[in-house]
């Protein structure tokens, strides 16, 4: 009974974390369907509408949601004794394992590519105007790569649980 409750709670956290994290990407994809590069004027004037919008945007929750999602997913696999077989893409756990590998790439992309560049764009880390403009392009591409990768990951999450017969 406790085991089932633990797994249901972990799965719930996994869903909620994924929605908060990837929901950020999807919201941006819908509200800004085309890339609009920041300009020197946007970044040099703290009162410019785009700089104000940037500063008011949420910068922490989705990053920690990515850790919650990854951690709860890994916990479920570990609790079931599936972690090693999933990560080695063994048998019917291959879809889930592949999803976890791609999701791991996404977490690394978010924390080690997007966030360090975003800190430059926002001015949390000192950088020249040129560097900040270049960093804003990197953050955009990094986010879009994660948006693209989330599509197969969501498929593999579903296939791993409900579509084993398709790949077994």
């Amino acid at each position: 009974m406790e085991g089932i409750l633990f797994e249901v709670l972990a799965r719930w956290l996994h869903f909620v974390g994924a929605l908060v994290w990837v929901g950020h990407n999807y919201a941006t994809a819908v509200t800004r369907p085309r890339y609009m590069p920041l300009t020197a004027a946007d970044l040099s004037d703290p009162e410019s509408p785009r700089q104000r919008a940037l500063m008011q945007r949420e910068h922490g929750t989705f990053r920690y949601a990515s850790l919650l999602t990854w951690g709860s997913g890994a916990l479920i696999l570990w609790y079931r004794g599936w972690l090693v077989d999933a990560l080695s893409l063994h048998g019917s756990l291959a879809p889930l394992g592949l999803g976890m590998w791609i999701a791991t790439l996404m977490v690394c992309n978010l924390w080690f590519v997007l966030w360090p560049h975003q800190k430059r764009v926002l001015g949390f880390v000192p950088a020249s105007l040129d560097e900040r403009l270049r960093a804003s392009r990197v953050t955009f591409l990094s986010a879009r790569v994660n948006t693209m990768l989330s599509i197969p990951v969501l498929f593999l999450m579903g296939a791993g649980t409900h579509g084993i017969a398709l790949f077994g």
Partner: peptide, 30 residues
């Protein structure tokens, strides 16, 4: 290549294409 990601619609098409390719590979490997 990365410029393709400037468009949300193309990003989704690339994601769906990648999904189909990976699903096909998993099916073949299974």
């Amino acid at each position: 290549m990365l410029k393709l990601l400037d468009s949300s619609a193309v990003t989704v098409v690339l994601g769906v294409t990648l999904t189909i390719v990976l699903a096909a590979l998993l099916r073949l490997a299974g």
